[in-house]
Design a protein around this nucleic acid. Structure first.
Lengths: 322, 322
DNA sequence: ACTAACCTCC
DNA sequence: GGAGGTTAGT
């Protein structure tokens, strides 16, 4: 038996709006820790990790760990039927093959329930490294979204370069080039307008703007976004979900042209563009995971027991960090 | 060396949004007088003339007159990347084949630079007559836009008739007819709501709504629009650009059906529609230009020295009038 | 040619 | 705040 009551139902609506374009089907994992999801995008290039901690729910009952496969588009359709002020309750029976979403209007005048069939989904639970980053940029999420949108009208990829002075977003396309520099700025009226750069070492990485623009669909969730960068590692674009957790997007950097040229393969084309780097194929996240084993605090936390895929020790990292 | 700093960058954004649908490629002419553009639309039926006077810029440096050929769509794409409050600087080197747009956020936290390749464009600089008009209508630009949009759902052409009582916009289509009369009205709370009619002589002219609707893309630039009419002359639809100049659209009237019937050519078709009157082909503006030579005040103003086309005396009229 | 985002009107 | 239209992008 599962029953999760979320007073701020709009959070779940926003979460789904931000994920449904990237991922078609995914398993929601439910344990005493919280309600979480981890999935690769359909082209296996990007990865999404969501965590909504149990403490964020008004009522959280999860008798037995459950992994519920859902079509996110359909789930989003149902959640769209909830008012923004509605209280949302997610219900499922342990044995059942359906999930029920209940929407209560704030005045209790309207109560709706939507039942959705669950699906069997092969979960590709990956261990996600809790890495040290060379640079972490925190900036207003709307500004980041605007930059990604603007640059994608000029080019397909963005080079994100962090130095002490600030973070630079650059692109190049047929019609010209573009560079946008954001300086660190902590002396702002509202803290959500701050741009903070924590840099251990300068770093410069290239990413596909198409995915960045998908990630920024999560902008309504938080005023701030955190971009964590390290050479060779996937970038982490994180939006906090108020009082509850986070949604994180991972994207492997494209190889710089230099790197491609250094590769042994004979490639006859000249002026070849940097190629997409699928996270799983070229640089599986598990392969670049630092030698970080289960932390002590994990011991007394329940593990995910997936109904469709058995979780390994590694998989727990996703839920227990932070 | 060219460096034009425009504090209200949104003006340039709006200017490009209003021109890019009409004209694909055009030369921007830069002289001590200001930053200007004159171009025919792609089908050579309408003409756009833009002037942003140097005094309107916070900083205006133009060592040598320059004519810069730009793809207006690409330029618009780049300007879209500027925030509405951004300060826009246009930079170009005298010999160079690129132009750079710099956008500074009001707080200086974000600085963007966009570089764009220039093009070689055959400029068809036409002399534009400084005509006397039989009627000049000044009215709220939004109202004019609304009328053109509404009428174009009924018919393809609009007959604009000015009498002492007011201005009438009429159309006729398969589904019926429409007449919209706006009376002169100067007793309004806000001056921008006024409708003012200066009429020497009643006039009635027919225009293609398709172009009128293109012109009204400039509506965001000004609360008021001025429509200047004379028989046989192209209409001038003018929007002032605050503190800086204007954007003017010229469109030759269609021949009335009567006129067509009076023409010698044997045309077998019955119910023939009024034909498009290209400004250059049927009624070249130079041909209908009143015998108005260069005015005295022109003498001490610098002339445009185009790098791709040498300007004639006539061409200067565009920039020096008003 | 279709879809999605934006903007305006109701 | 919702709906519809328009426009831009795929």
């Amino acid at each position: 038996m599962l029953e999760l009551r979320l007073v701020q139902g709009s959070l779940l609506k926003k979460v789904l709006e931000s994920v449904k374009d990237l991922v078609n089907d995914a398993n929601f994992d439910c344990s005493a820790t919280g309600f979480s999801l981890q999935a690769m995008d359909s082209s296996h290039v990007a990865l999404v990790a969501l965590l909504l901690r149990s403490e964020g729910f008004e009522h959280y009952r999860c008798d037995r760990n459950l992994s519920m496969g859902m079509n996110l588009n359909n789930m989003a359709k149902m959640l769209k039927c909830a008012g923004n002020d509605d209280i949302v309750t997610i219900k499922a029976d342990d044995g059942g093959d359906t999930v029920t979403f209940m929407f209560e209007s704030p005045t209790q005048d309207k109560i709706a329930d939507f039942e959705m069939k669950l699906m069997d989904i092969d979960s590709e639970h990956l261990g996600i490294p809790e890495a040290e980053f060379q640079a972490i940029v925190r900036m207003p999420s709307a500004e980041f979204a605007r930059i990604c949108k603007d640059l994608s009208s000029i080019g397909d990829t963005v080079v994100i370069s962090v130095t002490k002075e600030g973070v630079k977003f650059s692109t190049r396309g047929d019609i010209g080039t573009a560079n946008i520099v954001c300086r660190q700025n902590t002396t702002v009226d509202k803290p959500e307008d701050a741009t903070v750069i924590e840099m251990q070492e300068p770093v410069s990485l290239t990413f596909a703007l198409r995915y960045m623009n998908s990630f920024t669909k999560a902008t309504p969730l938080s005023n701030q976004v955190t971009i964590s960068l390290s050479s060779e590692l996937p970038v982490v674009v994180e939006y906090k979900v108020a009082e509850m957790g986070y949604i994180r997007f991972y994207l492997a950097p494209k190889l710089e042209e230099d790197d491609i040229e250094n590769q042994a393969e004979a490639r006859p084309e000249v002026n070849k563009k940097p190629k997409e780097e699928p996270i799983v194929d070229a640089k599986p996240i598990s392969a670049i995971k630092p030698k970080l084993e289960v932390k002590a605090e994990d011991e007394n936390k329940p593990q995910i027991e997936s109904t469709t895929a058995v979780g390994s020790k590694e998989e727990i990292d996703l839920m227990d960090d932070e």
